[in-house]
């Protein structure tokens, strides 16, 4: 998956989990938990949606790599 596709997937998934977040205004360095205020259940749902949409299953040990929006996009681009 190229970075553009990965970005579209991530934006769509965040839009579902946190519909109030306006991604146009979000810096990609933003942290999902602290800055976008996703709790652990939101985060799990995000990982689940990405798994459903792309088949990329992010194991727990890789969570540290997907702390930020940019990190998540990069992870998908290299694993998808």
């Amino acid at each position: 998956m190229n970075e553009q596709d990965a970005r579209a997937v991530v934006h769509a998934a965040i839009g579902k989990v946190a519909p109030d977040v306006d991604l146009a205004d979000v810096d990609e360095g933003s942290r999902l938990r602290q800055d976008l205020e996703l709790d652990s259940l939101d985060f799990l749902r995000l990982v689940e949606i990405i798994d459903t949409d792309t088949g990329v299953n992010i194991p727990e040990r890789d969570y540290p790599a997907v702390v930020t929006v940019a990190g998540l996009i990069g992870y998908l681009a290299s694993h998808g």
């Binding site: 997937v9 769509a12 839009g15 519909p19 109030d20 459903t52 949409d53």
Partner: peptide, 12 residues
């Protein structure tokens, strides 16, 4: 195929 991306943003 369940749902293609990109999706429309969910409404509040």
């Amino acid at each position: 195929q369940v749902e293609p991306v990109p999706l429309p943003r969910e409404l509040p």
